Amino acid sequence: MSIEPPAGTITIAGKTVSRLGFGTMRLTGPGTWGHPEDFTTAVFVLREAVNAYGITHIDTADAYGPHTAEALIRHALYPYPDDVLVATKVGMIRPAPNVWAPHGHPGYLRACVEASLRRLGRERLELCYLHRIDPKVPIADQLGTLQALKGEGKIGHIGLSKVASEDIRLAGKYITVAAVQNVLNVRDHFDPALELCRDLGIPYVAYRPLDAGNLVRSPGLEASLSWLLQLGPHVAPIPATSRLSHLAEIVSAVGAGGRP
Rank of each mutant, 00 (worst) to 15 (best):
N182F: 11
T176K: 08
P192A: 02
L170H: 14
E195P: 03
G172T: 02
G172Q: 05
D191T: 00
T176R: 08
K173Y: 10
K173M: 06
V177Q: 11
R169H: 12
P192T: 00
K173A: 15
G159M: 12
A178W: 04
V180K: 04
K173P: 00
D191Y: 03
A193F: 02
S161F: 02
A164G: 05
L184R: 08
A171W: 03
V183A: 02
D188P: 08
K162V: 13
A178T: 07
V186S: 09
C197N: 01
L184H: 12
K162W: 03
D199M: 14
E195G: 00
N182R: 10
G201R: 08
S161P: 13
V186T: 11
N185Y: 00
N185V: 07
D167F: 12
D199E: 15
V183H: 11
S165T: 05
P192K: 04
N185H: 06
L196N: 10
L160V: 14
K173F: 04
L200A: 15
D188T: 12
Q181Y: 03
G201W: 06
K162Q: 15
A164V: 03
V163F: 07
Y174E: 15
V163R: 06
D199Q: 15
T176S: 13
V186L: 04
Y174R: 02
G201S: 08
